[in-house]
Design a binder for these strands. Structure first.
Lengths: 307, 307
DNA sequence: CTCCATCTTTGCCAAATGCGCAAAGCCGTT
DNA sequence: AACGGCTTTGCGCATTTGGCAAAGATGGAG
């Protein structure tokens, strides 16, 4: 075909129509409006007919554009399905797998899992994005992201890697020195370790809220954006921390940190977990292998679980 | 989809399988084997599985490759058909139309036709390749080529623009000075005008062959690769020329050149013509417009026809 | 009516990509 | 063993792509 980039530009065109603007499509794709405009110009030039009638506030399709839009989605779906079908072959795993997750989880569990996968599949390469942000697999062209906590509704497909709980914990010598709180209200008299710029799914507000009445939170004397640092601060006796069990579960098991199960921990009443999220319905062979390795590394029940 | 170039590389993959080698696919596409290899590498990397088992003599597909090959052709056909369907909308003609033809034909008939088309469609742009070569529309990414004479079988789709004949002609004063040959054999005693590096479909050998026995060809005293120059040489009385009627038809009509219909011109026994050839089954809107303009410029019967 | 926010467009330029070239090595045939 | 034609890959260069910034358009809010 004369225009090898036809399918590529077609997908851009569909995004423009769906989003209603070049700017919207650009945000969706992580590109500037000028880049989008140029790709649509290339498509129109290749076809020799205009597809869109533009103004700065309204974008409408021509007859040709409407016809193309009708035809485009099934075509793009078939391309996507075919890509996924072939990518699911696992005779010989190669290529790049891109994953985003929280830094602490990544260092603790993902890297060990991936070490093993790469040993077994030398031609596989990994790009691991350790970030506190909620990465978007579609926008950032990731194969998967690991999300922790409760999931917001989205078009992403989730598979559960493990359960998780959030634990109130302190070191034994902190408790010996400052007393052991018996209720959530008593936390007001204690020194707390807080997350500096945490994601929405973590934070003391859950403890305050589920204990009833006004949040009874004491002063945060140590704030940091890194789970690992918070764990070390807790072990050092700086204060009481509120952390996921995958961060401190093994310290609790070892007696280095003491769990404070105040009021039966209502913040764990609803199920919560560690999830692997992907955009495509059909998992690629790489994703299945990485998923399996993660589950094996995490264990069943997870290695961080406290009785 | 993660790989925007998937469809593009898919088409390359299909060519590689069809041609049986990277080198063959490269020749088909006008690219070097290294460029083809890289595109296949990109495809395999994107899919994460090998598609081809390579050696320097044999290229075989893996299971994944076979499956992809099965799926690819219908997909690529649908893309091509969709492109063609949309390109056939002629609400507003724009884009580039690429055409190749012989220089003399181009200057005499194509440029006047295209002048008119571009006046009517200001957003249309034309790339006109005036060449003595037989241009390949697929390889050179042309919308169409004009071929003259009898057509070799090919996958190209031909529509006839006009009939053509080849004529033996000389100027009146050449004939007055050198005598008028009555048979093909008598040409041996005359001075001839020949084409320097002509294409297969033109040349004195046809005159010699159809007149029976050994070719009775006189000395070529003027050789040139340009039809227009040959026409001017004939008018100047340099010798006898053997040219298509679209080159010298109007000179014969005006009496400036005399047609020599030796032995009922057996070289015109089989039909011959001027053809517009394209690669795609469905003509684009641009092609229809250019085709119509060419027919109108050439006329019915052609303006060059001699009674 | 004015202002503002957000859009599209386009020239310019930097960054990224793709490809040709050339060389090395492989492989089947002669 | 030699040869022809293949694949592969490093390198350099040309081309393409896309971000930036500025200009102008447009609808809604005040």
């Amino acid at each position: 075909m004369k225009d090898p980039r036809f399918a590529e530009h077609l997908a851009v065109f569909v995004d423009v129509v769906r989003q209603g603007s070049f700017s919207g499509a650009g945000r969706r794709r992580g590109q500037t409006p000028s880049a989008i405009v140029r790709q649509i110009d290339a498509l129109e030039h290749s076809l020799g007919v205009p597809l869109l009638i533009r103004s700065t506030r309204a974008l409408t399709m021509t007859d040709a554009g409407e016809r193309l839009f009708e035809r485009a989605q099934p075509l793009l779906d078939q391309l996507t399905d075919t890509h996924a079908e072939i990518a699911a072959f696992d005779g010989a795993i190669a290529g790049t797998f891109r994953l985003a997750c929280f830094p602490t989880f990544g260092k603790r569990y993902v890297i060990p899992a991936i070490e093993r996968v790469m040993a077994e599949h030398p031609r596989l390469t990994i790009e691991l994005d350790l970030t506190e942000r909620l990465a978007d697999p579609v926008l950032e062209r990731l194969d998967a992201v690991i999300r922790i906590g409760r999931l917001a509704d989205s078009t992403l497909i989730a598979s559960k890697l493990a359960d998780q709980c959030r634990l109130l914990i302190a070191s034994p010598h902190y408790l010996a020195r400052s007393g052991r709180p018996g209720t959530a209200a008593e936390l007001a008299e204690h020194r707390l370790i807080d997350k500096l710029h945490g994601a929405d799914l973590l934070g003391w507000s859950d403890v305050g809220r589920t204990a009833g009445g006004a949040a009874a939170i004491g002063p945060a004397v140590f704030r940091c954006d890194d789970f690992e640092a918070m764990r070390l601060a807790a072990r050092a006796g700086i204060g009481i921390a509120f952390l996921p069990d995958w961060v401190i579960g093994t310290d609790v098991q070892a007696g280095e940190l003491i769990r404070l199960p105040l009021e039966d921990e209502p913040w764990n009443a609803e199920p919560s977990g560690v999830w692997l999220l992907r955009a495509l319905a059909q998992p690629s062979a790489r994703l299945r292998i990485v998923s399996t390795a993660l589950r094996e590394t995490i264990g069943t029940p997870p290695v961080w679980t406290c009785g």
